[in-house]
Every structure is written in C-alpha cells, then in structure tokens.
Design a protein around this nucleic acid. Structure first.
Lengths: 221, 221
DNA sequence: TAGATTGTTAATCGATTAACAATC
DNA sequence: TAGATTGTTAATCGATTAACAATC
C-alpha cells in the first residue's frame, strides 16, 4: 500500500507564537557564540545562557526541522543560518520610517538593526519643513507619496513613530499603500486588516511591568 | 559577578504573568475611554477594543479583585485607579537613565512615559565629556556615582541604553548600587540576581518577528 | 420585573517538561 | 565501545474559553 507523504511541516503543524519569539533569542545568542569562537552548542548550554530548559530549546527548534546532531549538539554557524532562513532575515528587508520627530530621528541615527538585515531606505512625514530634506542621509517624503516610495524601494515593513492621535490614520494610509508589517511606537492599539501584522514598543507599559514586579517582589518570591 | 538568567517560571502561581501584561493594556484603553467621555465599559466592549475575549477580560481582572458591577460592567475611572494601584503606578517612580548616546538622548527628549508616573531624575555615563553636563535639563553623573545618585533620588528603576559589550558590567554596577528593575535596550540577555527584574527592548528582534509573519503569511492564513 | 453583565467553576485547549530510544 | 545529546512521545502543567448562577 502506497501512501502520500504526510504533510507535517510548518505549514500544517501549528508553530506556537512563543516559539517564534524565542527563535530570535536563539539567533542572537548563536551570533554571540560565534563571536566567542564557539562552534557547537548543546540544547542545555544554549538554554542555560537564555534561561530556558534544554527540552524547550530542542522542542522549539524541532518545530522547524532536524538541525542538531545526536551526541554533538548544534553547529552554531549552520543553525544560525537555518534560523535566519526561517525568520526571513537571510535576505535584506527595506524599511520605511514614518514620523521624523525626536524619536524617529533617534531611530534613524541609531541603526542598531542594520546589521540584522533591516535597512531604512526612506522616511515619511507630513511636516512641510521636513519634506524634501534628508535626515541622517535618509530622504524625507510627504506621507501622500507612501504608495510610490513603498513601490519604488520594494518596502514591506514600516516603523511608525507618529503622535498617538494620528497613528491609526497614518497606519491606515500605509496599509492602503501596501505595507505588510508595522512596528508601532504609539501607545495605542492599532486596528489592522488580518493580512497585516504589527509589533509594538510601549516604554510606559514596560516600565509598568517593572513597577508591578518590584512592588510585588515580596509576594512573588 | 555572575548570575543565572532570571527564569520566567518564577512568576506567582496565582496570577499569570500574561495577565499582568494585559493589565497595562486595559489601563491604556481605559484612559482612552475616559478621554472619550465614556464612563462604564463591559468586558465584551473592552475586550473587543483590544482583541481579547470577554471571558479573558473578566478572568484577568478577577485575579486582583471584584471590580465590576453585574448588569452594568466596569466604571472606567474606578477601574483605572484600581489597575494603577495594582501596577504600582498610582504613585510616582523616579528613574535613572544610563548611557547618554544617541538613543539615550532621544529617550531623555521623548518623555512619552512621564505622563504615566515615571520621571527621569538623573543620567549616568562614563564619557568625561558628558559627565557634569545637562541633557534636556537632566544632569549627567559619572557611573561611579550610581549608588549615591540612586540613594539621593530614591531611584529604583533604570533605563539602560549603553553599548552591548558593556551592558552586563554596567547592569552589574547598577545592581550593586541597589537598583531593582532594569529596562534594557542592549540586544543581549542580561544575567541578574533573582530579586532584580528586567524588561528589554530589541528592535531587531521585533523586526524579525514581523519578517517571519510576513514571509509565512500564506501558511498562517 | 426583564435585561444585562459579572465572577467563578468546569471543560477545553495548548505549551512546557520529563523521559528515553535512536544515534553520533 | 562508552558517553553525550538529539528528536519525539507521553505526562504534566497552565492558560483560555464556555457556561451559568448570582446580582444589579
């Protein structure tokens, strides 16, 4: 009796979202290991460096393939390349930054993510004073040119650092213009069509979490 | 000073850590409702605005007390005050910012979290050129004065935006000086003693998560 | 009262951990 | 071969959802 190959790849098996989050941490740690000249790492070692159990590490990675060698562990370089491919960062992403205020300018200057295959190619703003200028070498266009800028540079992701009151409407325009993912710095919950994904950074919320943890330290200890 | 990375499993059995994270989102949304002049909200309404189920909202809040009124819902003002008390943000927190580089200066300028009861009272740096100056009105001290600055201002939380290679050692010094919570912008996993809590912001990781979601959109849809 | 909505218990679902045969 | 470590299955643990009596 001949069977069709069973489809148990990532497309049919549900990969927990938390596992994808940890994938980024594994990658970051693998890159540190490589910097330290370490060539192989076991799930126990990798987990210890990140505060995860060995089982967690193996399970997470096994969702995506057979990357390890029994008796040896994982080869750091090989695994980091595999993880990059899974995350989609084996190739370069072109990003647009929207809102060239204090925070936006700092991010243009920061460049902390460039080494990780994300490159800001253009900025958008509504301020006529900014439009037409360059900030940190990056040209600033009017928001109404979003669709054109996005198409010209093959942009799929946006970093949005506009004031909260206009954030939803700005994101709506970006979605209209074809953006597929949004990193949002405005402290509001953005409504998006299902085909667009967002991540957000809210420093007030993170500080609140620290506040809670510190205040409740006695109880949780 | 070497510590094990803090384990998430240290969270209390009674209240899931994820529920505490959502508490901040409830608070943010309650403040928007108040701005809109809305006085009461049901778990269904609040959940819809945040993308959570009504049961989730009720369950999360019920971990901390009986805040609702059957037949009516939750009174926005009252609930927001209760949530602030739980999070510890009903009172003001004094924060120190460490590392006055591009990102640090942007955060000093940003002030997005001041309205949420977090106030940066002082900055620390090792650059002799910076030490003794003021940035955005905030005085910059040498890192070696950490303990004194922390004690003088009653500081318990630190925002750390120093380069990755020195982040662990800087945090070690802050812990030594008595800091209780750290918001870390360096893209590394920081080892901390169990009594110190950390949150981190890593833009590269958040962009990677967007990258994954966009690349795997077909499968996940 | 009738309608609405909570807080809570029970049922379901999912994620983490433990254990171990397979394998290098 | 002996020792180490993976990938995977089973067991455990925890979190979310459903349902509904209590209650305003």
């Amino acid at each position: 009796m001949v069977h069709e190959p069973t489809r148990d790849t990532a497309s049919s098996v549900q990969v927990p979202e938390a596992a994808v989050g940890r994938l980024s941490l594994y990658l970051r740690e693998l890159q540190r290991l490589l910097d330290e000249g370490i060539e192989t790492v076991s799930s126990t070692q990798l987990g210890r460096r990140l505060g995860f159990s060995d089982a967690q590490v193996r399970k997470d990675l096994a969702h995506f393939g057979h990357f390890g060698y029994p008796g040896i562990g994982y080869r750091c370089l090989e695994l980091s390349e595999k993880v990059k491919t899974i995350l989609g960062t084996n190739r370069s992403w072109v990003v647009v930054l929207v809102g060239v205020g204090n925070l936006g300018r700092a991010l243009l200057r920061y460049r902390g993510f460039e080494q990780q295959s994300f490159r800001i190619a253009a900025a958008l703003d509504i301020d006529p004073q900014m439009v037409g200028s360059r900030v940190e070498g990056i040209p600033v266009f009017g928001l109404e040119l979003a669709a054109e800028v996005i198409k010209t540079h093959g942009i799929r992701l946006a970093i949005v650092c506009v004031p909260s009151p206009v954030a939803q409407s700005v994101v709506d325009q970006l979605v209209e213009a074809g953006i597929e993912g949004v990193l949002n710095f405005a402290p509001i919950t953005i409504s998006l069509p299902k085909h667009v994904r967002s991540e957000s950074v809210d420093l007030a919320i993170q500080l609140e979490q620290l506040s809670f943890a510190v205040v409740n330290k006695e109880q949780s200890a």
